[in-house]
Design a protein around this nucleic acid. Structure first.
Lengths: 229, 229
DNA sequence: GTCTATAACCGGATAGAC
DNA sequence: GTCTATCCGGTTATAGAC
């Protein structure tokens, strides 16, 4: 069996690339070819949805026939698996780096917001797939995509810890619910992939600063607690 | 042809129920039956996604066979069409009512936020379908779902007008981008359907007030412009 | 590494009996 | 209004030639 094939099953993200001691072959390595195929598939999954994208379409996009795809991948699922894992590994790594740098909770949170928005551009397709097809992929028999939940839980702990730390040390107002606040921040970042355009009026950095401004200082002018309700 | 069937095509939402002069039949009217089927289908669409839900599953849920469904509906698409239209008609009507009451822009915006969150409970399935399958449905040939865009555009104009009015009259800070701000508010509301549970710790009213607090006053303690960055 | 050919299956939709 | 029976096309995946 081709060692690069993802046999999936019960193994989570950590076990995935045991064959990943990829020799750097002369040029146009097999792993580059594979990554290219994954990228093509990701774009199609993002545009049409995972289920609505056929392996034939992926193959046509790559200039081969559908049967040939199975030389590279076990199944259609293993392709989307690789799309999502690549994104999550990168994101979690970046969050860890932000936390490792330390600092005031409010600064750390702002930096995490910037990290999230910054991921929209390089991982646009993967984020879209995660947004649209997360429910479906999780519902598949077996826990092939259980690592999605594991990664989400780790990220949630990171955010909530900073929010609570900010409340304890005084930078964050104590009367907000940490978990609810985390969810709203998270959702606001990732759902932006629906309207964000790389060539649009605002880049992800500008969007991040705009959101950080509203998130910390609010929309209202004048004194606090002057909002209606 | 059965007048209750939605032949879809180019007609938008307003033209839909020309046959809707439903006689109130004795009991368990045909329209009630139909609405029940739509509701069952909506739950399945929300849980598994539109494409992953088969007409056979919908039929089984209703205790009939798949062929029998076609006595009530033209197609699977016409079912999801009805799910979304019912929701959008209700939502747009409620927004219009809020605007008709008038008031300070900040009060109006807060009331619109409350209106959105309040819709999560009665329209949970429809909102989920809109979130997950909007892209796919829009991509279908023909503009069968063009009314989705029309309704979204009307709602966008409503929000942005209030934000701009607030900036002009002084209640909303002038240095935020109205369109960007609208998108973030909109997304924060609707994406909450992913984690909102009707029997959970917080009801939609509490979630709305929590969000309104952060949205207008911000997360930070102390003076303005003290945020990092 | 790709192609040809095809297996095995499942999807939406229809026609007509009852 | 529902059932029976079925059509027809599309889907993933496989086997073996080149």
């Amino acid at each position: 069996m081709n060692p690069r094939k993802n046999s999936g099953g019960t193994t989570g993200a950590p076990a995935r690339r045991q064959g990943a001691a990829r020799r750097a072959t002369a040029s146009g390595s097999a792993s580059e070819r594979r990554d290219h195929l994954v990228q093509l598939a990701a774009e199609l999954f993002a545009r049409k949805g995972f289920q609505a994208t056929t392996v034939r379409e992926i193959a046509v996009e790559a200039g081969i026939l559908s049967g040939s795809l199975y030389h590279h991948f076990d199944s259609k699922e293993s392709i989307v698996d690789e799309v999502l894992t690549t994104f999550l590994d990168d994101l979690v790594g970046r969050y860890r780096a932000v936390l490792a740098r330390g600092g005031e909770p409010r600064e750390v949170l702002a930096e995490m917001v910037r990290t999230g928005f910054a991921a929209l551009k390089p991982h646009r397709a993967a984020v879209t797939v995660m947004q649209n097809d997360w429910n479906y992929l999780r519902s598949l028999p077996g826990d092939r995509f259980g690592y999605l939940v594991k990664a989400e839980e780790e990220v949630e702990r990171m955010w909530i810890e900073q929010i609570k730390r900010g409340q304890a040390t005084g930078g964050i107002r104590p009367d907000v619910d940490p978990k609810l606040t985390y969810r709203m921040i998270r959702d606001t970042i990732w759902v932006a992939v629906r309207w964000f355009r790389p060539d649009g009026r605002l880049d992800t950095a500008a969007i991040a600063e705009h959101y950080i401004m509203i998130l910390f200082d609010g929309l209202a002018t004048g004194e606090r607690s002057s909002h209606p309700g």
